[in-house]
Design a protein around this nucleic acid. Structure first.
Lengths: 349, 349
DNA sequence: CTGTTAGCGCTTTCAT
DNA sequence: ATGAAAGCGCTAACAG
């Protein structure tokens, strides 16, 4: 039933050592032996058990992961929860995880961190990318050194990752706009909250989501006016001022879409000023967003399964490093639509 | 770092054999040895690796799973996909899976199958329940023989399962009604599709969902009229007749909610009769429902992650059988809200 | 280049 | 009641 290395060895008339050398491309194998074994391998469906492999595997793998800084209750924390879960599941494989944080609102910090990573020894790298040029520069270096890399959170065009695990940000924006307009009076004006960054335009993900929002309106021939709500993550004390200015300028706002994880900024403003007649659609199950959803300030919250992204990135990288099996490159995680009623069920199990 | 049986044995001054006997309650251990080992076990965090255990474990486990008959592309198929995935992941554990199908629309078939199961030898049973009395009778027998059982799809009150993996059907109905009324003109009349069964009233899940629908209307003080659409799974040829009769009787239907997996029945009717002004909210990602969602006949489709339910049921049962560790009883899977835009991402990975 | 062998953590058998 | 030892599938070191 189950095929073992020993079975393959017997049928090919060689020893288990030789089969192992062939399976792992360790060299020191004659053409004759290789052919004999390859023939058997084609006939049978051999599936090594990675946990057993790990038991005798002596080598250590060094995996670097680089993302925006992790704050408790925020988006990136969930990615790392998935990472930890995968590491626990594969605890027979000896991996040395190196965590390198940069600040996604500051391009200079990203440059610093990436240039360090480029000089480090590693078997694989997991990247949560923000800035395009910087990411391409890093991945070019990695490719030079034949170090495989995997993206989480979003794919960066112009690179050749082993795989990426991300939601479809364009569709996310499109969907947010569809949901918002479906629960908002016809022709309501719509606000869109956008964070400022140091040294660069918006992030990858935000740009795509915003395009999704615009395209939905155009495709459906909707004429809702869209107004940008400016705000700065680095100067949160100005938020209140900026928001009240916005809501005093535009009196006919029927709904707001927040294409980044800071929806709670709006929700908090609604709570403080007892605003109830403006609908709100946001993204990411951060702790404050979850609370705002439960309290009714957010109407729909889109989740992008960050835990699964982190889990799959580690799992995929480990299995690749151990067996060098081919890997599926494009992997979109689901876009979960959460409401007040369903969010509790996303936080268990 | 990682604690092995050998470490525990050394620190307790006994052999690994003794530790193993204690960990698995195999008996033949002196009080002295037991105390010494228990003391160490309390100090350290020992976590056996089930894949390695499985490698040397000689015993086979027999697991019985009983559900409604599986048809390709329907709800129950996904449950079995999760079952298979878990079995593959734990392929070191030798399990003999016995599948016993009954017909969920026929209480007599259920009685037959259950009474057979009650006489079979088994280490554990997984039940996808439909009829209350029958299920309680079966689980009473199982409890007599100390056979642990796990529910998938829904929990049956009045039983004591090891665990259950189910969505919250009441909330599912509540949510469906919320979504439907949010995209439907105020005071629209609402249709609700209900299947007939042989020999009993409606199923567990449908009753709960229907209650959710009603409660939502009442809680929100909505006065939409609710009309039952009768239909028989066993006489599909009458469907067309029943539906046209319904839609000719009630001319002001604005939306339909389908609290069972047969939403495609309505969607097909809409497609055939080119009906576009009635909103439709359904449950379960069956193949026909998925198609109807993509084609725009269904507006919202609720998914209840059947694959995860099957996976978790097997995983939980296997881990319990091998280690007898305590198990969390109540496990609700998420209620996924799918739209035309997001369904594709639920079918990959 | 190749076969043999020890050993990974765990269970089970077999003496004692 | 207990320890020693073999064996599960796999890898790695070693001897040839």
């Amino acid at each position: 039933m189950k095929v073992r290395i020993k079975d393959i060895a017997e049928r090919a008339g060689v020893s288990t050592g030789t089969v192992d050398r062939i399976l792992h491309n360790r060299g020191n194998v004659s053409e004759t032996a290789r052919e004999a074994v390859d023939k058997i391998l084609k006939e049978v469906n051999y599936k090594p058990n990675i946990h057993i492999s790990g038991m005798s595997l002596k080598r250590k793998y060094r995996i670097i992961i680089t993302t925006h800084i992790v704050f408790p209750g925020e988006y990136w924390e969930s990615i790392y929860q998935g990472v930890d879960k995968a590491l626990a599941e594969y605890d027979n494989i000896k991996v040395d995880l190196v965590i390198c944080h940069y600040n996604q609102y500051d391009i200079y910090s990203c440059r610093n961190v990436y240039s360090q990573i480029a000089t480090m020894e590693a078997d694989g790298v997991i990247i949560g990318p923000t800035f395009k040029e910087e990411t391409i520069k890093l991945t070019t270096e990695l490719e030079k050194n034949s170090i495989p890399y995997i993206f989480v959170d979003s794919m960066m065009q112009g690179t050749n990752p082993l795989a990426y695990f991300s939601s479809d940000h364009y569709t996310c924006g499109y969907l947010m706009c569809k949901l918002l307009t479906s629960i908002t009076p016809e022709n309501s004006e719509i606000g869109i909250l956008q964070a400022e960054r140091i040294g660069d335009g918006s992030a990858n993900t935000t740009i795509l989501r915003k395009k999704g929002v615009n395209d939905y309106l155009n495709e459906k021939g909707l004429s809702n006016k869209l107004h940008r709500i400016p705000f700065s993550v680095l100067e949160p004390e100005r938020t209140d001022l900026l928001l009240s200015k916005f809501f005093h300028t535009y009196k006919n706002i029927g709904g707001i879409v927040v294409p980044n994880s800071r929806g709670n900024v709006i929700a908090d403003y609604f709570a403080k000023n007892d605003i109830k007649n403006i609908r709100l659609v946001c993204v990411d199950i951060t702790e404050p967003n979850a609370r705002a959803l439960k309290e009714g300030h957010i109407d729909f919250l889109i989740g992008q399964e960050p835990e699964r992204q982190g889990f799959m990135a580690i799992k995929t990288l480990i299995e690749y490093l151990v067996y060098r099996n081919p890997v599926k490159v494009d992997n979109f995680v689901p876009l979960d639509i959460l409401t007040k009623e369903t969010i509790d069920y996303y936080e268990t199990i």
